[in-house]
Simulated assay, not measured.
Amino acid sequence: MTTRKEFLKTAGLLGMAGIVSPVIAGTVKERPSAASTSWADGSRLVVSVSMQFEAGGQPQNAESPFPQNMVKGFKDFPAETWYQYGYKEGIPRMLDNWDKLGIKVTSHMVGSAVLKNPALAKEIVQRGHEAAAHGRDWATQYTMSYEEERKFIKDGVDAVKDITGVTPVGFNANWLRRGENTLKILQELGFIYHIDDLSRDEPFIIQVNEKDFAVVPYTLRCNDIQLVAGQWFSTDQFLNQVKMEFDQLYEESAHKRRMMSVSFHDRIGGSPQMVKATNELFRYIKQHPGVVFRRKDEIARMALSDKNTIRE
């Protein structure tokens, strides 16, 4: 079967496509044509799992499965219990599932949620998972001034560090909506990667403040808040969609570096039915040779240290 690279080479379009080198300064720089398709650790395909720790940090009357028809000035008590499920049941159940599967994940933690549930935040780290940053709260950071946003990000980092003892090196903005200054601030604060990007199925490197900075792409296609809470997928539909995503990426990984991202949120992905579906899905994935599960900080460091990583 002819690959895209072989087709472009045969058609004399390889240089135009930017696969060997960019034609015009500033275009995307692809990896060298002789680069290995496998990862630096020898794996064939890397699976990146997110476990968002947000519950408890949401604003009053935040979006929920309940109709958004609350009379102004009154508190939405049932919606609050939906969020409480995330830290009372959801994350503990997911943590047990990750142990059964023998995998480690990345937990993007909202600072105010961590401060309200410190024991749970500590447990996540103690069980070997990555504590990454997700802002101080659910504020809209892209409207902030440089100084306001820097404090907003740092406050979230400090909350995670003070409770868990770990300084986050990865960042996720609320609904991925970063601002013009976000990446510059992250680089200044010592972060090495962000995930607010949907443009590739593998990590890549960009220049921020004239330094390398990793992008570990996120997902909406394999995301419980988008599919289950947003489109009311059944667990069977979710399982089938993510399985098909894996099958296609695994096929591509025979000749191209691939990463699969899957995202779970505390109050959604931690439900009994979703954990059961996830266990079945990941056991299926683990049966395939060359597949590994990696925390996002591990993926970012692999990408930054590998000369074959795509640069943009």
Rank of each mutant, 00 (worst) to 15 (best):
L115Y: 10
R127K: 14
I153N: 03
M94D: 06
L176H: 15
K104I: 01
G90N: 07
R93M: 04
H134M: 03
E149F: 10
Q141N: 07
K154Y: 12
N97V: 11
K116L: 13
R177D: 13
Q126P: 03
G179I: 07
I103P: 02
V114F: 11
A119N: 14
K88V: 11
G128C: 02
D137Y: 07
A133K: 04
S145M: 04
M144D: 05
A173I: 12
A121E: 04
T140N: 11
Y83Q: 12
V105N: 00
G156T: 05
V125T: 09
P118C: 10
F152V: 08
R177N: 15
Y85W: 12
N117K: 06
P92I: 00
I103D: 05
G102Y: 00
E123A: 07
A159F: 06
I91S: 01
Y142I: 05
N174K: 12
K161D: 11
D155S: 12
I91C: 01
L95Y: 00
K161Q: 14
K88A: 10
I103M: 03
R177V: 14
G102V: 00
R127D: 00
L95T: 00
Y146L: 12
L101A: 00
A119H: 15
Y142M: 08
Q84K: 13
S145F: 01
D155A: 08
W98R: 00
K161R: 13
K161S: 12
L176P: 10
P118G: 12
K104F: 01
Q141I: 09
L115A: 14
I103K: 01
A139N: 08
V110T: 13
M144S: 05
S112I: 12
W98Y: 13
Y85I: 06
Y142N: 11
G135V: 05
I124N: 01
L120W: 03
K122P: 02
R178P: 09
W98I: 02
V125A: 13
A113L: 05
R178K: 15
A131G: 03
E149R: 11
H129E: 01
D99G: 01
D162I: 09
Y146C: 04
D96G: 15
G102A: 00
R177H: 14
V160Y: 08
V166Y: 07
G111H: 05
T143I: 13
N172I: 15
S145G: 10
M109P: 00
E130V: 04
I153T: 08
T167E: 15
E123H: 02
A159M: 09
E130K: 07
V110Y: 08
Y146D: 09
G179D: 08
E149K: 06
E148N: 10
K122C: 01
D155F: 09
P118H: 14
E130Q: 07
L101Q: 08
R178Y: 15
A121K: 06
D162N: 12
A113T: 07
E147F: 06
